[in-house]
Structures are given as structure tokens and as C-alpha cells.
Design a protein around this nucleic acid. Structure first.
Lengths: 207, 207
DNA sequence: TCGCTTGTTGGACGATCGTATAACAAGTGT
DNA sequence: ACACTTGTTATACGATCGTCCAACAAGCGA
């Protein structure tokens, strides 16, 4: 009886470990294979503990999405900070970070897909997606404004760039053989050059 | 005993009806709620019949994806034909058709998400996705070549435009409140204008 | 040192899953 | 009119699901 049968953890730490275990399970077996027992096994705890911390499996997946999304935001934010103050350099950093680990990875895509699955049938989760997406787009609009875009063009440009990067990210994670991360970077950068240039074809603003 | 207990169907017709029932179930309950029994109930047949025509639920979902994908190709192909011979008009038709029913719809997204879920864990299904995607991109490259793009730029331009349209399509289906289909059209058209213009800023090649 | 709180365990429960299979009947050729 | 083929049904089976709950023990205050 020298080794304890289990160890008590801080509620927040335990929640966090369950969330991370859920992310690992999602990455390994996908959205279809995720279950309370698999998550508990991955976290090294009893199955009953999952229901003690989360109302249900859906709530845990939603919390996992929130955690993964904040991880992505953090990684991109760090890349932006490392890029310095120049707006165009920060925009490039956003693109580069989007196509490199940990943002671009099949494991992350699994979590995203599972969340999209839930969002289609659960209005509350759909709202969580909408809010996080709108928040990210607002930040991108601020960055584009710093790049010199006209206020009237900000909204559409942010939507277009978000869609482009997300589309490249999705396909890159889903089938890595179609094109490489370096190619995705190059494609996105070239497209950005054309998308954020002012309508009057002056091409001497950023470099 | 005047009404028959069941009616015998042509094997191909029965397969087709099961595929369509699977698509409806996917649209209604999502990837998580799809099951042999739900599909059989939707198709009005016995549960055992599903396994009589398909090796398993995964095979049926894969077949459903193939069917839905061909429906999308057909819808876009029809839009291209209706647009006439001018390459730029055909490109615009591709964009317009991508953001209108039946291509842009939450039900279709449900099928896509279910298929992505499977593709992450089943290599054979991942290969099916790769092939269909590569095929579509090749067709787009041909259209871009007709628009006057240099051969060296075709590959990257096709990847960029596919990613842009897919990203807009995904977000439009996932959260219709963020922006409208008309806005998606406008954004994609404006981006296309900038993406397919030749590097030397001559704007008089196609119109 | 002892008792209390509560995080944690581990199994029970009913529901539902995918699959397999025997019985049935519809349609066809003879 | 009859037998045969086979599409179709209905059910049974084992596995696994999410949920629940009573018992246990780890850590803390008295």
C-alpha cells in the first residue's frame, strides 16, 4: 500500500489533462472513434471522471476545440510578435505560421472536423464557432488596415484572405501529397501581394 | 395479402436509393448520428439490406461521397456550359455555381465533413479524395490556361483559386450569418480579377 | 491522530451499434 | 401451375456506447 491508488489533482489541471487527452484521441482515431472510455484511458483516469468534469462528451469536445483554437491563436500571435512591427512582415508571418506545425497538422484537423460535425447539429457550438471566427477576422482586418488598405475594402479582403489561407490549410492537412507547406506559403504570399495592393496598380508600397 | 410485403428493385436502383438515403441522414443528423438502421429507415427498407449491398457503413459513406461529388461536378459543369465559350465568363460561372444551391448547402457540407472524418483514418478513402481533388484541379488549370495564364503559373493559380473558393464555400455553409452568398460571389470575383491578371499589368487579354 | 469532505474509482445499466444468418416471398423461366 | 433463384425481411448476437451511482481513499482541518 505504499503507492497511492490515485492522486488528487487540482480541478483546473484535471480538466486541462482531460481536454488534452481528448485532443490526442481525436487525432488518433478521428471524430467517429472518440468516446468517454478512450479519453479516460488516454488520460490515465477512470471513465466516470469524464462525466464528473464535463456535462457530456459534446461539452468536452467543445472545450477541446476552444483549447486548440487558443493554441492556434497563441502560435500565430507569437509568430506575429516575432515578425516585428512592419505590417506586411506580420501578414507574411501569419501565413508562414498557418502552414507550419503546430497549426498545420493532421491531428489539429481531426479536432477541427469533429467540431464542425458538432456545430452542424448544436446551435450553441455553432455560435462558439461564429464568435471565434469573427474575432479572428476582426484582428486580421486591423492588420490589413495597418497595411494601408482602404476601410471600405477591409471586410471583403479579410474574408478573402481568411478563406484562402483556410482553404490551403485544409487541403494541406487533408492530403499532404498534393502540395507542400513551402508551396502553400509561396502561393499564399503571391496571392496576398495581389490582393492587398491598392486598386491603382502601384506596386511600390511594401518592398 | 393483396399488397406485397416488399418490392424487388433493380440492383443499381436500390444501391442508388440507399446512397441518397445516406446523404439525407448525413444532412439531418450529421456524421456522428449516421447508422445502418437510420439509413435503412430513411430508405424504407430493412436494416439488413444495407449490408447486402455495401461491405460496411464506411463503404456506403464513401459511395455517398462519390455520388455527391459527381452531383457537384455536374452542377458546376452545367453552369459552365450555360456560360458560353468565353473563358472568363466560365470562370465566373464556376464561382457563382459554387455559392448557390445545390453546391452551397449545409446538407452537402455534412456529407463532406463525414467523408473528411473517414479520410483521416482510412487510406483508401484518402486516396479517393486525392484523386477527385486532383481531377478537379486539372480541369481548373485548363480553364485558367484558356484565360491566358502562363503555363508556369497554372498550377499555383489553380491551387490558390480552389483554396479560395473552398474556403469561402466552407465558411458560407458552416455559418451563413457571417456573410451572404452574394457577398461570397463578389469577393471571389474581385479576387479572381487580381489573381489571374498577368504579372505585367496589362488588362486587355480576355475582355 | 481522527473524522470529514470530495475527488476518484470501477462496475452496472439500458440503449444502440454493426454484423451475421435463417426464414420468407417476389419474380421468372419452364 | 410449379419450382427455383435471390432480393428482402426480421431477428439474434456480441460489442460498445453514454450515463449513473455506491463505495473507496486521499488530503486536509480540527
Amino acid at each position: 500500500m505504499s503507492t497511492p491508488a490515485f492522486t488528487r489533482a487540482e480541478p483546473d489541471a484535471r480538466r486541462q489533462s482531460l481536454i488534452e487527452a481528448c485532443a490526442r484521441v481525436l487525432a488518433q482515431v478521428g471524430a467517429a472513434g472518440v468516446s468517454v472510455r478512450a479519453i479516460a484511458l488516454e488520460a490515465g483516469v477512470s471513465p466516470g471522471l469524464v462525466n464528473h468534469y464535463f456535462a457530456g462528451i459534446d461539452a468536452l469536445v467543445a472545450a477541446t476545440y476552444g483549447h486548440v483554437e487558443s493554441q492556434v491563436s497563441e502560435a500565430i500571435g507569437a509568430a506575429l510578435d516575432a515578425a516585428g512591427p512592419r505590417p506586411r512582415a506580420r501578414l507574411d508571418a501569419y501565413v508562414t505560421a498557418s502552414f507550419a506545425p503546430p497549426v498545420a497538422s493532421g491531428e489539429l484537423l481531426a479536432t477541427w472536423i469533429a467540431f464542425w460535425s458538432l456545430a452542424r447539429s448544436r446551435p450553441e457550438i455553432a455560435r462558439q464557432h461564429d464568435e471565434q471566427y469573427a474575432q479572428f477576422r476582426t484582428a486580421l482586418e486591423a492588420l490589413l488596415a495597418a497595411c494601408g488598405l482602404a476601410p471600405a475594402e477591409l471586410r471583403h479582403a479579410a474574408i478573402a484572405i481568411t478563406a484562402l489561407v483556410d482553404g490551403l490549410w485544409l487541403e494541406l492537412c487533408l492530403s499532404p501529397h498534393a502540395f507542400s507547406a513551402a508551396e502553400a506559403c509561396e502561393i499564399a504570399r503571391a496571392a496576398l501581394d495581389r490582393l492587398i495592393s491598392t486598386s491603382r496598380s502601384t506596386g511600390s508600397d511594401s518592398m
